[in-house]
Computed example of a mutant assay.
Amino acid sequence: MAVVVAQKWGNSLGIRIPKEAAEKIGISFGSELEMYVAENGESITLKPRSPQKKYTLEELLSQITPENRHDEIDFGTEGRELI
């Protein structure tokens, strides 16, 4: 167990996570964490957030099928767009 001190960081409070604890849960500088506070307020749990997959344009376009495409929608004209 490590003892950490809460310090002022802007309008919030921040704590430093000891190197050994960060390595144990697999986080590094810039890692996103989910924070859970127990109902009784006596404990905080930090969980590394799973990174979201970055899709390529080709991957997204490959998912288009005739079944999931919609028909063209005519919204008409307003103002002087066609001039």
Rank of each mutant, 00 (worst) to 15 (best):
M1R: 13
M1N: 14
M1D: 15
A2H: 14
A2Y: 14
V3E: 07
V3Y: 00
V3Q: 08
V3A: 10
V4D: 04
V5K: 07
V5Q: 02
V5H: 03
A6S: 12
A6V: 15
K8V: 12
K8N: 08
W9E: 05
G10D: 02
G10H: 05
G10Y: 03
S12K: 09
S12L: 11
I15R: 01
I15E: 04
R16Q: 11
P18D: 05
K19I: 08
E20D: 15
A21T: 10
A21D: 05
A21F: 09
A22I: 01
A22R: 05
E23L: 09
K24T: 12
I25F: 13
I25A: 06
I27A: 01
I27T: 00
I27V: 11
F29E: 15
G30T: 07
G30M: 01
G30H: 04
G30K: 04
S31W: 05
E34L: 13
M35F: 08
M35V: 13
Y36N: 14
V37P: 04
A38R: 02
A38K: 00
A38Q: 10
A38D: 14
E39Q: 12
N40H: 02
G41Y: 01
G41H: 02
E42C: 09
E42R: 12
S43I: 03
S43D: 10
S43H: 01
I44K: 02
L46S: 00
K47Y: 01
K47L: 10
K47P: 06
P48A: 02
P48Y: 01
P48K: 06
R49I: 04
R49H: 07
S50P: 00
S50H: 05
S50T: 14
S50L: 06
P51E: 12
Q52E: 13
K53D: 00
K53V: 09
T56R: 00
T56K: 04
E58A: 08
E58M: 02
E58T: 10
E59Y: 05
L60I: 15
L61E: 12
L61I: 12
S62K: 10
S62C: 07
I64S: 06
I64Y: 07
I64F: 07
T65A: 00
P66D: 03
P66F: 03
E67H: 12
E67N: 13
R69W: 02
R69D: 03
R69G: 06
H70P: 00
H70L: 11
H70Q: 14
D71T: 13
E72M: 11
E72K: 10
E72I: 14
E72F: 07
I73G: 01
D74P: 08
F75T: 09
G76L: 04
G76A: 04
T77A: 12
T77Q: 08
E78P: 00
G79E: 03
G79C: 05
R80N: 15
R80E: 15
I83Q: 07
I83N: 12
I83Y: 05
